[in-house]
Amino acid sequence: MRAFAIAALPVLAFAAALPLAQRAQAQAGKSGQELFAERCAACHVEGGFGTRVLSRRVPEGQAELEKRETLPAALTIAVVRRGIGSMPQIREAELSDADLQAIANYLEKRL
């Protein structure tokens, strides 16, 4: 069984890699919350680098973006595209306008 699995894996691996290549199209079907978890959460959840930095700059309880009382979509978009403080900008080839808008809308509506 193990020998079969090893022999078959390179082919399986190639097949499984294909969705990665098609991500630009596939992302359109994801919700803002899912995209936030996928693209932003590495830094912007509890304990993340972004949350730690923000905790030194914003009122208590506001460092985690998903717990912000107010976070206008336009601000999220501007910060992501231009960068701010310790956060580098993220370009459109890396995060599409549609995906960024979905993330920004998700964060704005968590009022």
């Binding site: 390179p10 890699a17 290549a21």
Partner: peptide
């Protein structure tokens, strides 16, 4: 960055 395929992983 759009050329982001893992083309092969050969375990053996």
């Amino acid at each position: 960055i759009r050329m982001n395929r893992i083309l092969e992983v050969n375990v053996e």
